[in-house]
Simulated assay, not measured.
Amino acid sequence: MDDTEQIERLYTPGEVADYLGIERQTVTKYARLLEQNGYNFLKDEKGNRNYTDSNIMMFKELIKQRNRPGIALETAAKSIVAIYESKSVFPTDTLIPSDITRLEQATADRLDQQDKTMEKQSELIRVLLERLDEKSKYEEERDKRFNERLDKIVAEVSASVIKQLDQKENQLLLTAKEEVEITKKEVASAKEEIEAIKAEKKASSLDFSESEEEALTRSFSMP
């Protein structure tokens, strides 16, 4: 570590205010006044001021000069900027080498953290995509099993209906055959009855003729 980094330490506005016993807004007011007179404070990547031990001494001197009779704050600021710029071993750039190194490291750390975050997000997205794919496959397989089951049920119901229709048709045919057989028997029975009646009538007619013939014969043979 070089002498610059050993001597110079960066302070926040709040730390400077606490050290000097003034308000934080006053620190900002003094810093702006010094900047208006040509002084450049150290700033981070966001443009926020960081103060060194030298800056604290400048503020102390400014407060001291402000309390002197007849000294305007603007005049005190100009003289202080001139004195400290001539004595300063640091460049007037807004960032010293040690601060640049620290910011570069902070930026690298932030980028590394972002890379890790993006890697985690990518892994999360990959897991989510895998789950979605598994869910899609599961739903596809479920729909396939449902359709197969539905087809099986439809086939079973269709077969049952067809069987019932066949049984009903067979029953109707059997009933029709039975009725035809009954009708045939009834017709045959009716024919037998008719033939019997005819035979009976014929026999009755023959008996009548024979009786008449005997009566005539007897009448002719009488004296």
Rank of each mutant, 00 (worst) to 15 (best):
N170G: 06
A17N: 04
A155N: 01
D3K: 07
R32D: 05
E169I: 03
T107S: 12
N67M: 06
S209Y: 09
A159H: 03
Q65I: 15
E123F: 11
S136W: 08
K137E: 13
K137R: 12
Q114G: 00
K60E: 11
I162G: 05
L174A: 11
E35P: 01
F220R: 07
L111G: 01
T75I: 08
A17M: 00
L103Y: 06
I197L: 08
R49T: 01
I197E: 14
K116L: 09
N40A: 14
D133V: 09
K60A: 04
F208H: 06
I100D: 02
E179W: 04
F59I: 01
T217Q: 13
E213S: 09
V27M: 07
Y39H: 12
S98G: 08
R145Y: 06
Y51R: 02
Y39I: 08
I80G: 03
V89Q: 13
I96H: 00
L73V: 06
T175A: 11
Q167P: 02
V180I: 14
E8D: 15
N67A: 10
T12C: 11
K87F: 05
V161W: 04
E35F: 09
D53R: 00
A106F: 01
D44S: 04
R126Y: 05
K60C: 05
V157D: 14
E45R: 05
I22H: 06
E195M: 12
T183V: 08
S88R: 10
A188P: 01
R149H: 06
A196E: 11
R110E: 15
I162H: 10
I83S: 14
I80T: 10
T101K: 08
L150E: 06
A31F: 01
Q164M: 13
V161P: 00
S160G: 04
E200H: 05
V81Y: 07
K60N: 08
E5N: 13
L73F: 08
S221I: 02
R145L: 05
M1C: 03
A215Q: 10
E104Q: 13
I197H: 12
Q25G: 08
E214R: 07
Q171M: 12
V180E: 15
T107W: 13
V161R: 07
L103P: 02
D151C: 02
E23S: 07
E140F: 10
E213A: 09
A106T: 03
Y51C: 04
A155T: 01
E104P: 03
A199P: 05
D151G: 01
L173V: 04
A199D: 12
S219K: 07
T28F: 12
L206T: 02
I153H: 03
T26M: 02
Y84E: 14
V81F: 05
